[in-house]
Amino acid sequence: MTPRTMPRLAPRSVLLIVLGVLLVALVVGMEQLAPLFRAWFPDQNPAMYERESFLNLTLAHVALVLVSSLISVGVGVGAGLFVTRPAGREFAPLVSTLAAIGQTFPPAAVLAIVVPLAGFGFVPTLVALILYGLLPVVQNTVAGLGTVPPQTLEAARGNGMSAWQILWHIELPLAMRVIVAGVRVSVIINIGTATIGSTVGATTLGTPIIAGLVGNNLPYVIQGALLVGLLAIVTDLAFERLERRFSFGASGATP
């Protein structure tokens, strides 16, 4: 924390707080808006998704993304570290290519392909999310570690740091910004893919959307889409803040 930003909040932080509060309010109190939806869609009955509370849907969605992202980050950072150490360097080109080609696969198609292997429900969605979420994390871990200047590493070695100390005190902190950017991409994609996961039987915020699309019930669609859109935007803004924390006084944010 640099002292100069302490006194007033940046406009983006205000946005984050406002949207965050809005998200929580909608998750908890969507039912209060029932009269509004009834007035807006007088022909629709019911005009409010009631098969499951929005709180439960949101928690299930968040849990799915959280669990898959934690695993993705653990495995992805681990793989990124492995291919940048002397022992694993031989695997680096293959892993990078795999991450690049894998990301051209449509997330929805990956989700669909997992079904024959893992069945319907929570598990295939989780597996697809983990697999897909791995790729940006691996890619950015490798890229981030690659941005550490060779002179810095030489200086660290020359000052008597062990390989472990260099990794922990020099390489990881310097690569952290890029790694966090990768996690951000991964989590945002996963929030979206988890939504589609409701088509393979996972309970998420996509459930009311799909129910609405199938049953031609527009209010359901709007309620689900609003929450999941807001969830994604708030998460993205929070990650933007987190990224900035690892800039070490250097200027600006990435576009």
Partner: peptide, 9 residues
């Protein structure tokens, strides 16, 4: 915004 939400909105 997740694709399905944008489509739906």
């Amino acid at each position: 915004i997740p694709s399905i939400a944008l489509f739906a909105l």
